[in-house]
C-alpha cells in the first residue's frame, strides 16, 4: 500500500468509510470520496490505459482533469478521467485499451 498513514503537517490519516471497487476483475478497497486514480495508486497500480496504436502504457500525468492521460473504462463508460472522478461502491474499473468501447 502506498498510503501516507502519518504526516508531520497533516497528521494521522483519518478514518474513512471503505468503498469496494473491482479493477480488471480484482477487488480493491478505496476510501470514500477519493478519486479513482488515488485508489489505484494506493493499491500499487500505475498503468491506467494502453495507447491506440502502439499499445503503450499510460498513467496519471496532470492530476487535475486536464491532460486525459489517466482515462479508463468505468462501469462500461470509456474515457472517464480517473483523477477527477470519485470512487463509488461496486464500481467496475478496467484498464482501457485504445480509445475504449461503450459496454
Amino acid at each position: 500500500m502506498n498510503r501516507i498513514v502519518d504526516h508531520p503537517i497533516l497528521g494521522p490519516l483519518s478514518e474513512a468509510e471503505v468503498v469496494h471497487i473491482i479493477v480488471d476483475g480484482v477487488p480493491f478497497t478505496a476510501r470514500k470520496g477519493e478519486m479513482i486514480a488515488s485508489a489505484l495508486i494506493a493499491n500499487g497500480k500505475s498503468t491506467f490505459r494502453k495507447t491506440v496504436k502502439r499499445n503503450e502504457p499510460r498513467g496519471i500525468y496532470c492530476g487535475i482533469g486536464r491532460c486525459t492521460d489517466c482515462v479508463m473504462t468505468v462501469n462500461g463508460i470509456p474515457n472517464v478521467r480517473t483523477c477527477v472522478t470519485a470512487v463509488e461502491e461496486g464500481m467496475v474499473i478496467e484498464t482501457q485499451m485504445g480509445s475504449g468501447e461503450w459496454q
Binding site: N2, R3, I4, E34, A37, C62
Partner: peptide
C-alpha cells in the same frame, strides 16, 4: 511512461489524496 507526472499532480496525490505515487 507511467511514473512521469507533473509536480503538481504528485503534490495533489501526497497532500490531498494521501498516496505516494
Amino acid at each position: 511512461l507511467p511514473g512521469v507526472m507533473g509536480a503538481g499532480a504528485a503534490q495533489t496525490m501526497i497532500n490531498v489524496n494521501r498516496v505516494l505515487p
